[in-house]
Amino acid sequence: MFSGCFVALVTPMLPDGEIDYKGLEQLVDLHLQHGTDGLVIMGTTAEAATISLSEQSDVIARVAGQVSGQIPVLAGNGSNATAEGVARTRELDKLAIDGFLTVTPFYNKPMQKGMLAHYQQVAAATQKPVLLYNVPGRTGVDLLPETVAELAMTDNIVGIKEATGSLTRLSDLQRCCPGDFLLFSGDDASGLNFMRAGGHGVISVTANVAPAQMSRLCKLALSGHFAEAEQLDQSLQGLHHQLFIESNPIPVKWALQRMGVMTSDFMRLPLTQLEPIHHQIIEQALQQAGLVA
């Protein structure tokens, strides 16, 4: 169903805070041309928390229309309120998307039974595939393998983006979940080892700035060509780590502007532009990856 390199796409913005639709179109074209296997729109990296639902719907509809079935498009539909998550899912379900990426409820810190009920209700609001998204570092809760296994019994919950960076967690998920349950890494730095251990791909921040390299890395890993994949991954490790030197997507937007891919690295408050002290660090990571001279 889904595999390989999915990019957690940034949302280009103009200096006045409006969405840069021309820049967005160019960004999507870049991924279509460089082999990205799928797009995740309006997730954390897209700054969904500061973008209204009507704006999100507009962005997702435009991207889906531009892609026109060439690669899968997944929409972020996460919320920390279950009723809002259900309503959001029903609204976005009207669009020509291929599925959803649903982050765990954030800030509320629900128990496992609360997350179980939350996901069951959100998944019931659509017939499209749903990928769970576990990122404890941002949400404050950890969706445990036993809960994932129970959710995997829901017909349209087809996989998970697991961003703990733990290969032990991957093996626990493999032990608990059905063999056809999709396992995506949400941690670029350990993504290669995740795929080596049986994962199906990566939902990647690094792919924003290195789409061709990340696409090739995933293809090599999933076809068992690990020696070549390791060599490529080494050149990207600086990006994997330094793109999180400040809160995502602050560094990746700066990198895209530095590369000339985007005209602005603007973000809506409370996110702010990359601190000058970090510019050279990201620059060196881009050089190591061969993306700037």
Results as ranks from 00 to 15, higher is better:
G43E: 01
H200C: 01
S171K: 08
H278R: 12
M267R: 10
G260T: 10
S223G: 09
T206Q: 00
Q288M: 11
G85M: 02
V202W: 06
Q284F: 09
G35N: 02
H118A: 05
P276H: 13
Q70K: 15
Q56C: 06
P105A: 00
A81H: 15
P211T: 08
M13H: 08
M153R: 15
F2K: 02
R258H: 11
Q213L: 13
F184Q: 07
G78S: 05
L144V: 15
M115Y: 03
G78M: 00
Q120M: 13
A221H: 14
L243Q: 04
L183H: 05
T206C: 05
E47Y: 01
L167H: 08
Q174V: 10
N208V: 02
Q273I: 15
L92Q: 01
Q56E: 04
A61G: 09
G69S: 08
E55Y: 06
E55V: 04
A124I: 07
G137A: 06
N134T: 10
V135K: 02
A285Y: 12
D172Q: 15
H118F: 07
G4C: 03
G186M: 01
M111L: 15
T44I: 14
L151I: 13
T154N: 11
S264M: 08
D180C: 08
H225W: 11
R138W: 01
R90V: 14
